[in-house]
Amino acid sequence: MSNTGRNKRLASFNCDVELWEKFTRQCRDNSTTATAVLIDFISHYVDNSLDDVH
């Protein structure tokens, strides 16, 4: 069983290594995490509010 907590799902996907490294570097430069950015994106995506993504 995964250690993701109640009402959470562990997500996994394949991504180009260079793209992922650039993404995580940008996250660090912005004092955030890949998880936080992806959750924010997903929330805005399902609400049809991508214009509000930070």
Rank of each mutant, 00 (worst) to 15 (best):
T33H: 11
S43L: 07
V53Q: 02
E18R: 13
D16S: 02
T24I: 14
N30W: 05
V53G: 00
Y45F: 06
V46R: 08
I39T: 03
D51P: 00
R28Q: 13
M1Y: 10
T4K: 11
S43T: 07
M1G: 15
N3R: 15
L50G: 00
S2L: 10
K22D: 13
K8N: 15
Y45G: 03
R28C: 04
F23V: 04
A36E: 05
T32F: 01
T24R: 13
A36Q: 05
D51E: 05
A11C: 10
F41A: 12
E18W: 04
I39C: 01
S2P: 12
M1I: 11
E21H: 14
E21N: 15
R25E: 15
V46P: 01
V17M: 08
S49Q: 13
V37F: 03
L50R: 01
V53E: 00
A11I: 10
T35S: 14
I42Y: 08
L38P: 03
Y45W: 06
A36C: 08
R6F: 13
R28Y: 07
D51G: 02
H44C: 05
G5K: 08
C15D: 03
N14F: 07
N7Q: 10
A34F: 12
S31H: 11
H44V: 00
S43V: 02
S31N: 14
